[in-house]
Amino acid sequence: MALVEVRGLRKTFGPVVAVADVSFEIKEGHCTALLGPNGAGKSTILNILAGLLPATAGTVRFEGLAEGADHRSLIGYLPQQVALFGWMTGLEYVRMAGELTGLDRPAADLRARELIGLLGLEAAQNRRIGGYSGGMKQRIGLCQALVNRPRLVILDEPVSGLDPVGRRELLDLLKQLKSESTILFSTHVLPDAEELSDDILIVRAGAIVIDSSLTALRARYERPIVELELDDEATAGSWLETLASRGVKGEHRGAVIRWKFETSAAMRAGAADVYASAASRPEGVRRIELGQTSLEDMFLEAVRQ
């Protein structure tokens, strides 16, 4: 059952078409990644879903609600730039967010303390947000998004502003969250999408170019590859030539040559050739690797098409 159904969504800013006729579904309990290059319209789609931007055309329908009904009490939203009131303390902010979703004060206080504890901010909960670090603000932002136990959590580039440690912590948190909530998050960090999500939406220039589950996407785009890294880019040409004469076509980016195959049988034959050539002239070879194309390759393919 789809939790959210988006049909024919369109948003224009004057002559600029930010989102052009986008339709998709968000499945209950799934984590959906909205991928796309900068300026593809990811934030616009999320802002419309969050109720902050009116759509030019199209509908957003939540399960159990009439079309276009106010669904703000069902969602939690974390924007790209978390802007909180610096003069408030973390606890006050999350408590206020809870009260604004309809909790009474004692319940909001309880829920705020629970979330702040979960995100490890107790020590700072009574300090002003103005003195918080970026990572702490992000976590308070997450607390305010989760305070009403939303059915859909919308996160706009949740890890983009964080240092590697903060990013790791947040990803682990989102993994926990996945088990109890439906999540829709945007990112341009592909490994994050691969790590967290069940479904992938790829947007390019305001349109959805891929809408698929991660498994189906892998099955469709994943291809066996052989990679050969050399010491020196200059010799790559001669390597490609030698192997091309045996029917193995590849391409190189810098000192890394990659051969992509349609089937694993073809890959076995090709790999044998590559290994044989490497064995016959091992000098200058840094590594040989068998593998699969990554989500990044699919992504680049999809947004270039």
């Binding site: 969050a50 902050l52 730039q81 604004l100 309809g102």
Partner: peptide
């Protein structure tokens, strides 16, 4: 401008 209004108005207010 600061973006704080968005975080308030995304609540059912």
């Amino acid at each position: 401008n600061a973006g704080t209004a968005a975080l308030i108005l995304v609540k059912p207010v």
